[in-house]
């Protein structure tokens, strides 16, 4: 059952990722991206990472993509103003590059023997994760807070002033 669900989520995630890249209309792209994020959250649940799955939905689907949608709506470009794809030559070169990159990554992955099943049970409970974040990773966590504050200030300045 879990294995079946995993393949369903993976197939959906990959299919909607392809749609994100190929749709001309940015709103469709954004909604397909939300779909991808949902499927990834599903995969996280299957891998016992419950907290991460919820954060994935809340942060990516609930905050970041809403921001994207908000900006797309605010600019509200008409269909003929929408820039679409690079010209054909660049497109083929880019496709070749992406395929080579993915292929070499796949080759690297397949050439080494990783265990298909984990060594034991993993408790993806919030408490254990919290202990790590507020213990071993306390400094990075605090730095993330500073980073977010900086992002807020930067976004406000960029949006206000004519640059």
């Amino acid at each position: 059952m879990i294995s079946f669900l995993f393949y369903v989520f993976s197939a959906l995630a990959l299919a909607s990722a392809v749609m994100v890249v190929t749709r001309k209309n940015p709103v469709s792209s954004a909604l397909f991206l939300v779909m991808t994020f949902f499927c990834l959250a599903g995969i996280y649940v299957l891998m016992d990472a419950f907290f991460l799955a919820v954060v994935q939905v809340a942060v990516y689907a609930g905050a970041i993509m809403v921001l994207f949608l908000f900006v797309i709506m605010m600019l509200n470009l008409s269909p003929d103003e929408l820039p679409a794809f690079m010209n054909r030559r660049i497109k083929w070169a880019a496709a070749a590059l992406a395929i080579v990159l993915t292929g070499s990554l796949l080759f690297l992955d397949l050439s080494r023997r990783l265990p298909a099943s984990p060594a034991g049970e993993l408790k993806g409970e919030v408490g254990a994760l919290g202990d790590l974040i507020f213990g071993k990773f306390l400094l990075p966590f605090e730095l993330t807070a500073v980073l977010l504050l900086m992002a807020i200030v930067a976004a406000v300045i960029m949006a206000r002033r004519e640059i």
């Binding site: 909604l31 919820v54 954060v55 939905v57 689907a61 609930g62 809403v66 949608l69 797309i72 709506m73």
Partner: peptide, 18 residues
């Protein structure tokens, strides 16, 4: 879970308006 799902309520309004 509740806050994650509740944050998705925006999509209906935004997509409907657009």
């Amino acid at each position: 879970f509740i806050f994650a799902i509740a944050s998705l309520g925006v999509y209906g309004l935004a997509v409907g308006g657009w």
